[in-house]
Design a protein around this nucleic acid. Structure first.
Lengths: 158, 158
DNA sequence: CTAAGATAGTCTCACATGCAACTATCTTAA
DNA sequence: TTAAGATAGTTGCATGTGAGACTATCTTAG
């Protein structure tokens, strides 16, 4: 008789854990700064690359649907956290960058989020954290969630 | 200047990974059997406990909102995969159990899902899988995602 | 016994998000 | 040069889901 213990079933555990961790973080970006996850992903991408980049690029490397990114960008522009300029080379796309105000919010938010992450991971030893990160990386890779160097090269051209 | 690499940020990675793993599994329960995630969770809970149990119990131990479970149960009853009887002791609640048809579907589905899980985790060595599971457990515990023995005891009374 | 509060389950509402159609633009091949 | 196809981004639509009100029932305190 086949049986499956939901609590030992990795897909279920990942789902639940991801939801819970998101909820724990949302107090930071949601309640405090009025950002939702897609908006936060846009800022995070723009902040990490100092360079401007296209919505397409953000959509691609965060694996978030382009319509979702589009709406997030609209909201961020309305709040003047992000601005965009038409790309002269290709007038279909826009170069996105944070405004001074957006950058200020970003600088304030990042340490809070990193602290939260540290809190959540503090139940693991340094070794355990390292193995955990390694395992995540391997699974991501096997699921093709990692940008290949070719893609990274291509996207750097944006 | 604060900076955060999204690709090293565990909350982001968990979100993305959970979404991807869910998508990989959905080909099994969704396309093949027309089940969505909440429906699958109901079946999984009923199947693991041989006993009947209440919707409340399923909601609680899968951490899924009761309205979501309610809808899932309605759908499963319509397909005659699950049946329920009013609980004589407490007429607010119902005892849920799988029908013969539901059990048959369950028996067919489980091995497929377990195989998928093995596939996904096959990129890790046995040791890595064990550490990964251990780490998940610790994080779950620190986030209070584990049923306490008291809760387990209480819920076993259902 | 009764009233107040707790609980199980359903239902309505609001909202987030994926899909797919659409516009505008770019690219490529004839 | 032009037509066909690809691509960037936006928008309307459908759907899934959480919040919270609501009904019915149970529990507990007075």
């Amino acid at each position: 008789m086949a049986k499956l213990d939901l609590f030992r079933f990795v897909p279920f555990r990942l789902n639940r854990l991801a939801a819970e961790v998101s909820a724990a973080l949302s107090s930071e970006y949601q309640e405090r700064y009025g950002l939702d996850i897609p908006e936060w992903r846009v800022l995070a991408t723009l902040g990490f690359r100092n360079d401007a980049c296209s919505a397409q690029y953000i959509s691609h490397c965060t694996r978030t649907h382009k319509s979702t990114i589009s709406r997030a960008v609209t909201a961020l522009m309305r709040r003047q956290l992000v601005e965009r300029v038409e790309n002269a080379d290709d007038r279909r796309e826009f170069s996105l960058r944070m405004t001074r105000k957006g950058r200020a919010l970003y600088e304030e938010l990042i340490p809070r989020l990193l602290r939260k992450e540290r809190e959540i991971m503090s139940c693991l030893t340094a070794d355990e954290r390292a193995s955990f990160a390694l395992a995540l990386g391997k699974i991501e890779k096997s699921l093709d969630l990692v940008l290949t160097s070719k893609e990274a090269g291509k996207t750097q051209a944006y």
